[in-house]
Design a protein around this nucleic acid. Structure first.
Lengths: 345, 345
DNA sequence: TTGTAAGCGTTATCAG
DNA sequence: CTGATAACGCTTACAA
């Protein structure tokens, strides 16, 4: 009975199979280069020993890890879950492993995490949105690590992105809402500093207001973090200081669900007393009552395309090419049309 | 302008600082062993070069990665988010990094993921629940990788666990419900095969029924995956085949929220027409209307204690010691008492 | 087709 | 306190 059992190495396999370590290595990485016979022998040894290649040694020798890092703002809610899931599945299909890291929306934590992923040998990086210290992009360029931005599309940016036009998406949505007669508009957004997605969505609402002859500054905006509670609190604050508000546009479904809860706490009926909208169209949008009218984001396609593009950037050693995806409006029941002027109380 | 810039190494730093690589290494791992003067010189070089230690090389040489792997059933909903967040924070505090991997509830994918984490040099592993192929535990023991089970506590199991008694928690909860007069009980559970938590919760309900003189077999049970939609569908199936059901106990908040949606789709009022309960007490439990009566799980404490214990197992090279945490019942509004016999329609 | 051997970037032991 | 130098486990020219 071996008292000091330790993980078997290439060497052990080689010895057992009666071949050199190079052959075992080839058997793993380039099986076709071996005789069927030796291949079988090696495979048998591997199996018998329960050998698993040592990742660190492998990546050090090959200078490749087949690992891709993703940094997301939060894992706490499902906003990024579906897209990331699709990203991961596509990566898997292409032989890559995903390493996720979340910043908890602390933008200054991002740099540290990025360096960590690079130190761990990530072959490429996926990040959410464009906004970040330029030094980070410089560092990545110097390290020759490809980056792809997602959840946002902006051809003006230097970093390639696969996502959607947050501003246009929100503008179209807001225009539809305005066409329904709403004039007293409130908005709950995630903190917009260091968050181009949030900023663009706000800008989109203002664009629409302007188009409809409303002064963009009359938008009653409140910025908060990203939880249900934040949404509920913000909603209450908003309605208290501006009771004649007829609709509250939220920067995300999570905030919107929170807002609906806030309305319930205040005894307001949605959408009879006040309309509420979301953004993202995550599963959650369908569990509230009423269900959420929101902007549908093509999470799955986005994740899949991002994976394909990032892998291509790595393997073909080329610049990434940006892609703009379309969003759609999903009407569900949290929005009512305005027929006559409503007076606050 | 350096045309072929590549990541700086220990060697580069050493050269620039005019010291040996050993000194640079010490500066990173054992700064006190250096003169203040040399330390400053090295630090300056590190800073100037923007040096980051290579993870693979480091873990190969040190045979330690300060990385801990966690395998969770899903990232798609928030069930594990809070606990994992706390786990991660505590790990961080102790100088470890967390690597998460999700199986999407495909239990046969778990072994592959575990091997992967081990190959990546995880110093320890956190897994959810006890149920898995014994071969996995053997493998881990042979590889000398400490494992800790969480989300479940069972002193009868060989693997140490920090969690709660799923069966007892559910029994106590069900007893309370029965005391309210409910006799026609339905239950929606996650698939219980390979999932001791789900199985124990079901058993807990049956225990309570027995105590109250009900035949445990009359429990109308339906097992489904884990999404909102699964919960909604299951609820509808349940109520159709057994319209006189007065309460539906769900194995998780996610399923319960789905069930509430199912009730809404069927035009049933909760809790007037039918009561619905959850399990976990995640944030979601407070966004539905009515809010969910559920079993509160001490996610945060659990994650924190698990991190502390696992790190101790690694650093002190000792067996883990199990801990049972308490759960509590949170009454919110989705449960009503039964006053008279209700007849299905 | 297979083997030999030189790295890959650290850490750690042992001298000095 | 600091410096050589031998691992660590694998990949990959280069030879045979």
């Amino acid at each position: 009975m071996p008292a000091n059992e330790t993980a078997p190495t290439l060497d052990d396999v080689a010895r057992m199979a009666g071949v050199s370590t190079a052959t075992v290595s080839r058997c793993l990485n380039d099986p076709d280069k071996l005789t069927k016979d030796t291949r079988m022998r090696v495979l048998a040894a591997i199996d018998k020993l329960g050998y698993t290649p040592n990742f660190a040694a492998r990546s050090m020798a090959a200078k490749r890890t087949f690992t891709i890092g993703a940094i997301i703002p939060t894992m706490e809610n499902a906003i990024f879950a579906r897209g990331l899931q699709a990203f991961q599945e596509e990566l898997d299909r292409r032989g890559y492993t995903l390493l996720v890291s979340s910043t908890a929306y602390k933008t200054d934590a991002e740099e540290k995490q990025i360096r960590n992923l690079v130190a761990r040998g990530a072959d490429g990086l996926l990040v959410i949105g464009h906004d970040r210290d330029p030094a980070i992009y410089d560092y990545l360029k110097q390290q020759r690590v490809p980056v792809l931005v997602t959840w946002s599309y902006d051809k003006a940016e230097a970093t390639p992105s696969i996502g959607f036009d947050n501003r246009a998406a929100m503008r179209v949505f807001a225009e539809k809402v305005l066409a329904l007669g709403h004039r007293r508009i409130g908005m709950i957004s995630s903190t917009s500093a260091q968050n181009d997605r949030a900023r663009m969505r706000i800008a989109g609402v203002r664009d629409a207001m302007e188009t409809h002859g409303l002064e963009p500054d009359t938008l009653d905006l409140i910025e908060v973090p990203y939880t249900f509670d934040d949404g509920a609190d913000a909603f209450i604050t908003l309605m208290r200081r501006n009771p004649e508000t007829t609709i509250v546009l939220c920067g995300s479904d999570v905030l919107a669900v929170g807002a609906i809860r806030g309305a319930r706490l205040m005894g307001l009926r949605v959408p009879d007393d006040v309309s509420i909208t979301g953004f993202d169209d995550i599963e959650l949008a369908q569990v509230t009552s009423p269900e959420l009218t929101t902007v549908h984001v093509p999470h799955h396609t986005m994740g899949q395309m991002a994976a394909a593009e990032l892998v291509a950037m790595i393997e073909e050693k080329r610049e990434g090419v940006s892609q703009k995806l379309a969003t759609t409006i999903v009407e569900r029941g949290s929005v009512a049309a305005i027929t006559k002027t409503k007076t606050g109380g």
